[in-house]
């Protein structure tokens, strides 16, 4: 039985990763999870300088999920290189660094800083955070803007580039095709879905930012649909995510066309989710006598 999956020439020991922003750089979860067992750690977004993030409350619960508007609080690339990279190097797992920025120059600066770091296997470009007013999402909701930033980042990146797509668009396949045409090596989807919650007793928004990104099991069917549509539209590999709580959920994404999957909000609910999903996929392969996990990719039948 072979759990390995390959994306843009990078081979992962299994297809289970962490979704950016739900796992820090792994430090906080190393107490619960053997990071050596993960397919990859996808880090919290890192910018060229520290970002303060949004006012609180930043999180709220909604039916079957949650809203967040953290606003990409992060220490910036200097601290990240000094502290987070050496921490992650101790582990036998692949590292994918999520990169955020307000301008194209911001992104390029971070991408260049990471270029000479062999511990970084891939870059994931966050052009889809719904909680930051400048930059970020502006690049992820217009196909021409997405094409432009992808092309520019590809000129500077030494590692393969994953563009993380927003579901908050009319047609995600248009965005996927634009990223592919601009040279993206892979796609990850979906980022959170913009939502809102109102506290009727206080007559206030549950989140200080008013809107927040929705994640959790309630969004999974939307994510599976978007992964399937995107897989039909592009040739480049897809990392699928959105509400994965169990191995069964993860296998749905693989069958829909994802080459790997990420666990996000469910890390907060059950810190052992990643490991349980890995074990569960193995058990599924065994149950059906499937040799390679890659045999599942896009194997849904009409």
């Amino acid at each position: 039985m072979n759990m390995q999956t390959t994306i843009a020439g990078v081979t992962f020991q299994n297809p289970v990763m962490t979704a950016s922003g739900t796992f820090g750089s792994g430090m906080e979860y190393a107490e619960f999870v053997d990071l050596n067992r993960l397919g990859a750690v996808v880090t919290k977004g890192v910018a060229n300088v520290p970002w303060t993030g949004n006012p609180t409350p930043r999180v709220a619960e909604v039916y079957g999920g949650m809203l967040n508007a953290i606003g990409l609080q992060n220490p910036g690339i200097d601290v990240f290189m000094e502290r987070d990279i050496p921490f992650l190097k101790q582990y036998d797992t692949k590292v994918i660094v999520n990169v955020c920025g307000k301008t194209v120059e911001d992104y390029v600066e971070v991408v260049e800083r990471l270029g000479d770091e062999p511990a970084v296997a891939m870059l994931e470009i966050n052009v889809s955070c719904p909680n930051v007013k400048e930059g970020a999402i502006a690049f992820g909701q217009r196909a021409d803007a997405l094409f432009g930033i992808t092309e520019e980042i590809k000129k500077h990146a030494k590692q393969p580039v994953i563009m993380k797509l927003s579901p908050n668009v009319t047609d995600i396949t248009e965005m996927a095709k634009a990223a592919e045409a601009a040279g993206a090596d892979a796609l990850s989807l979906i980022n959170t879905i913009t939502g809102m919650k109102i506290d009727i007793h206080r007559r206030k928004f549950a989140i200080a930012n008013k809107t927040g990104g929705m994640s959790g099991p309630a969004i999974k069917p939307i994510a599976v649909r978007m992964v399937y549509q995107t897989a039909q539209a592009v040739q480049i590999p897809i990392i699928g995510m959105g509400g994965i709580a169990t191995a069964e959920d993860a296998i749905e994404f693989l069958l829909a066309g994802a080459s790997a999957v990420s666990i996000g909000a469910m890390n907060f609910v059950n810190p052992y989710t990643t490991i349980e999903v890995i074990d569960g996929i193995e058990a599924y392969l065994k149950q059906y006598g499937i040799e390679n996990v890659t045999d599942l990719i896009g194997a849904v039948e009409a």
Partner: peptide, 22 residues
């Protein structure tokens, strides 16, 4: 999360915080 990963529950501090330096 309750364990320091999600950065949901922050409070403004006088000194630079050791995690995000913000």
């Amino acid at each position: 999360c309750g364990v320091g990963a999600c950065l949901g529950c922050v409070v403004k501090t006088k000194e630079l915080d050791h995690h995000s330096h913000v």
